[in-house]
């Protein structure tokens, strides 16, 4: 068993030549002299994670630490796990990670933790709370509630129906957004009625189709809440096709460049942006605190912010970046 595990580790290293420049494996794990941090994000080339990386790199530089970022090609634990196991040979002082699965990634992360590397969860988290010393994430339900409050403001007291577009059934983040929205809508906009959550398979074409169907079946539709990028773009298309842009209020989630562009052009009336830069910065601060033996906060909730066309330029720091 041990031989197998070692074999797997060596194989893991084999795939990561060139990233293991450090002297390998001092016995006794991390020492305060080790100022190397590693960040493993959820997927390559995603503006959300790039913004997180920017925040993390800035905070590490400030504190005199170095940070290396790696990313799997897809948001998939089978691609992320080898990256984590390969870190076993490098032994950074701390690992910041956005686990791509709340169960599957646990063994690999525990392995790293048992080598004395401090583990910090950023964005997503494991079900097993015994592995990471700190978790920083956006409160998705809070984001949904913020969306409902924003919807209430945008519709300014009108009576009507609201459609919620979720991605795929069983996606925990977008489900929490949809649920938070539906709950808060009852409080902050009692005159708005949700006509239920529709799934879009994360396909813009399906989102467009759901929106036009809702316009047919629900003449009093006044708002749509789209829980991520693809549903938002599809919903915007559906509204344009039906000639309802601006009449039906569209609240999107996240602030990717194309969505920000859409907000400026009037396709979206509001965006609920997370703060990935802050998640990255806080993650690094917590990691350094853990490495240096200072006190660490177990759970940190990153704030979300609503962007509208009027105030978007004042809040430009919340736009997601494609490069630092």
């Amino acid at each position: 068993m041990l031989v197998l595990a070692t074999g797997a580790l060596v194989a893991g290293c084999g795939g990561q030549i060139g990233q293991n420049n450090d002297t390998p494996a001092q016995t006794g794990g991390a020492t305060p002299a080790n100022k190397n941090l590693d960040l493993v994000v959820g997927v390559k080339n995603e503006p959300f994670y790039i913004s997180m990386q920017c925040g993390a790199e800035a905070a590490a530089k400030e504190a005199g630490y170095t940070i290396t970022t790696q990313a799997p090609d897809k948001f998939d634990p089978t691609l992320q796990a080898p990256i984590v196991t390969a870190l076993g040979a490098k032994k950074p002082a701390a690992l910041l990670i956005a686990p791509t699965d709340d169960k599957t990634m646990a063994p690999q992360m525990k392995q790293i933790k048992d080598m004395g590397v401090k583990v910090i969860e950023v964005d997503t988290a494991l079900q097993d709370t015994g592995i990471a010393v700190s978790s920083i994430s956006s409160d998705n339900a809070q984001g949904g509630r913020l969306a409902a409050q924003t919807m209430a403001k945008l519709t300014s007291g009108k009576t009507g129906s609201v459609l919620v577009l979720d991605t795929k059934a069983g996606t925990s983040t977008t489900a929490a957004r949809a649920k938070g929205f539906e709950e808060e809508l009852k409080n902050s906009a009692p005159n708005l009625k949700s006509i239920g959550i529709q799934f879009t398979e994360n396909e813009p074409s399906v989102a467009a189709q759901k929106v036009t169907a809702a316009i047919s079946s629900t003449p009093d539709l006044v708002g749509v809440f789209a829980t991520n990028l693809n549903t938002g773009e599809g919903a915007a298309t559906g509204l344009r096709s039906a000639g309802k842009v601006g009449q039906v209020q569209l609240v999107g989630f996240d602030a990717s460049p194309s969505e920000v562009e859409g907000l400026r052009a009037g396709a979206f009336q509001a965006l609920i942006a997370q703060d990935p830069g802050m998640i990255g910065r806080t993650g690094v601060q917590q990691a350094i605190a853990a490495v240096e033996g200072k006190s660490v906060q177990r759970n940190i909730s990153a704030p979300l912010v609503a962007l509208t066309k009027e105030d978007m330029d004042k809040k430009a720091e919340f736009f997601y970046k494609t490069k630092c």
Binding site: N202, A208, N230, E233
Partner: peptide
């Protein structure tokens, strides 16, 4: 023209 986006993560099916 329709989506005004390259919908890079769509069209999978």
């Amino acid at each position: 023209a329709y989506f005004q986006s390259t919908t890079i993560s769509g069209h999978t099916t």
